[in-house]
Design a binder for these strands. Structure first.
Ligand SMILES: [Mn+2]
Ligand SMILES: [Mn+2]
Ligand SMILES: [Mn+2]
Ligand SMILES: [Mn+2]
Lengths: 154, 154
DNA sequence: ACGAATATGATGCCAAGGCTACACTTTCTT
DNA sequence: AAGAAAGTGTAGCCTTGGCATCATATTCGT
């Protein structure tokens, strides 16, 4: 029989995706979210480069992200694999329709997160810095609450 | 000469740690922060297990985190390597003084983040869920702003 | 006391995301 | 029209953090 007596808590954890309110479920969801973070930042950045300069070259992307171009190219490979981007060799990276939609959502979320931090009293630099990581963990529900909060403050 | 004309922006990026207000600097800092996230969650959890049950066994830790025990043991190895924990084979994991301090800071930050989300109007479940990822990206400066904000609301 | 059940630890595998180094392509300048 | 400079792509290496599997250690029930 078992090895430790008073706590045989053997939950089964169905093949869920939604979130599950247990502690393990929260950590699992946090890991899922984290695995999207890099894709989100790339999509947002590529859209931004297209919106401003017109092109999204691996070297531009790499410089803006603070990584080497080799690293950027590998990430771009993943973006392509996930159906978020295409690339013409030596001619830059382009977002698919799905990639564009992701970028738009991510950009709006990023801005909203910064706004909320500022509204709470976080100094501008810290707000910009922390938002870069925080944004990825803000769920739709939370985002809606943020929007309501800002309406009230404004 | 170069290949693209109007944007030869070749900053050097000294061996900084502080943060650097450039976009690349923000991404770099976000990556540094992320590399601490797992250690923080383990430290917080081990402290919690000690506070309640008395022991922090690899299997307990694994179950609470939603990973296999093999994964937990590997992470514990890293905690030991970083001087945050010790372990007596088959007898559980223990935080060092430094580990205890980290755990205490992380726990306080976690609670404060949840409180702020709640105060903003985020539903309890979403607040708990999102805080698990957000917490790691909340800097000291931001945390202070959170504390001030809560004082004002209360 | 002993066997079964469970926990623990070690290994090996994998993908993600960093890096450096090197080869190749494109573009710019002369 | 070259040649130089910069960008691009590929390959190989590393660490982190997942997993499954297997062997070993501990504990519990009888
Ligand atoms: Mn980001
Ligand atoms: Mn962003
Ligand atoms: Mn956490
Ligand atoms: Mn936490």
């Amino acid at each position: 029989m078992p090895r430790r007596p008073a706590d045989a808590q053997q939950r089964q954890a169905a093949p869920d995706l939604p979130a599950e309110p247990t502690q393990a479920g929260r950590f699992e969801q946090a890991r899922r979210v984290q695995s999207m973070a890099l894709l989100e930042d790339y999509a947002e950045l590529i859209a931004d480069l297209h919106a401003t300069g017109g092109e999204a070259r691996p070297t531009d992307i790499a410089r803006r992200l603070g990584v080497t171009h080799a690293t950027a190219i590998k990430a771009i490979t993943r973006l392509k694999r996930e159906g978020l981007a295409t690339a013409r060799p030596y001619r830059g990276v382009f977002l698919t329709e799905e990639g564009e939609q992701l970028a738009a959502r991510v950009k709006a979320r990023h801005l909203l997160v910064v706004e909320v931090l500022r509204a709470i009293g976080v100094p501008p630099d810290a707000a910009e810095q922390d938002a870069e990581g925080i944004e990825h963990h803000v769920s739709d529900i939370t985002l809606q609450a943020f929007a309501r909060f800002l309406k009230g403050v404004k």
